[in-house]
Amino acid sequence: MTDQTAPQYLTTSRGRRLAYRKTGGTGPTIVFLGGFKSDMLGTKAVDLEAFAKDQGRAYLRFDYSGHGESDGDFLDGCIGDWAEDAEAALDRLTDGPLVLVGSSMGGWISLLMTRRLPERIAGLVTIAAAPDFTEDSMWAGFDQAQRTALDMVEQVSLPSDYGEPYIITKKLIEDGRNHLMLRDRIDLPFPTRFLIGTKDEAVDLSVAYRLLDRAEGGDIRLTLVKGKDHRFSDPECMELIKQAILEVSGS
C-alpha cells in the first residue's frame, strides 16, 4: 500500500519535531512503533492504518527523531531519545487505553513504554521484537578492530540487507545499556502476543525465547511462523498481526 497523506508534526519538550499520522475512532488506540532506521510509510504501518479504519479504531503511527519525515539526524539519536519520542507521542497524541504494536526495535521501545505508562497499556503485539540489540547483537558481535574503532572515532559501519550500511555510534551502544530489558523480569499484565519468523536474519530466535522467559503475565503467547523473515509483512504475516491485535484488544 502507498500513502499520499501529508504528516502532522509534534514538537516535544526536548525540541524534537516528530512527524505523525493519526486517524480517529474508538479505543483502545492502536499505536505502531517502527524499527531501527525504518519509518511510518512501511507496509506494516500503512496497512494497519487501513485495518484500524475498517475496525472503526483510533490509530497512530509516527517517526522517531532522525527517522522518516521527522526532523533530526539519525546518527545523533539513541534508544533513550527514541523512547522519549514515543512517550511524548503517546502522552500528547492519544487518550485512554492503548494497544502497542512494536516492530523490531519498536518492540524494544514498546516494552519500555509498558514500564513508563503501565496504566495505559491494554495490550501488546510485537513483531520480531529486538530488545537489547545494541548490546547483545551489535556490541557482542563486534571484533576487537570494530570495538577499537568505536572507541577512537566513535562510530563503526555495519552491512545492511536493506540498502546503505548502518553507521553505529558509540552513543547508541552506551545509551542502550541504560535501557536493557532482558536482564530482569518484564511485567506484562495484559494480553500480549510475540510474533517472529523462523527465517528472521536480523533477530535470532533465542531473543524471542529470552523475552518469553522474562515476561510475566496471565495471557502471553509466542508465535513462530515457519519460513518468514524479518520483514514479516507479506499478506499471511499481516493477517497474523491483525488477528493478534484483535486478540489483545478483546475483539
Rank of each mutant, 00 (worst) to 15 (best):
L224Y: 07
S104Y: 08
G68F: 00
W82T: 02
T223G: 06
G25E: 10
E154A: 13
L33Y: 03
S137K: 15
T192P: 08
R115P: 02
I173F: 12
F133K: 08
S233D: 13
G77F: 00
R147E: 07
Q8L: 12
Y20H: 11
L41H: 14
R21G: 01
T114A: 09
G42M: 01
R17G: 04
K37P: 00
L246Y: 11
F36N: 02
G72S: 08
I121E: 09
G72T: 07
W82P: 05
S103C: 05
D71V: 02
L212G: 04
E239M: 09
D204A: 15
L60V: 07
Y59I: 01
K226R: 15
I241A: 05
G107C: 05
S206E: 14
L33Q: 13
Q146N: 04
L10F: 11
G106D: 02
V153L: 10
S103I: 03
N178T: 12
D47K: 11
T126F: 03
L93G: 05
D71Q: 14
Y64C: 00
D132T: 06
G35K: 00
T23I: 14
R92D: 07
K53Q: 15
M113C: 07
S70C: 07
M138F: 15
R221W: 08
D54E: 15
L224M: 14
Q155C: 13
D234Q: 07
D73A: 13
K171G: 01
E135T: 13
L10E: 06
M113G: 07
I30H: 01
A52Q: 12
A130P: 00
S70E: 01
F142A: 05
S233P: 00
D95E: 15
R147H: 09
G42H: 06
C78F: 11
S104A: 06
T192K: 00
M181G: 03
S249H: 09
D143S: 10
F142H: 06
F232C: 08
T126Q: 07
F142I: 10
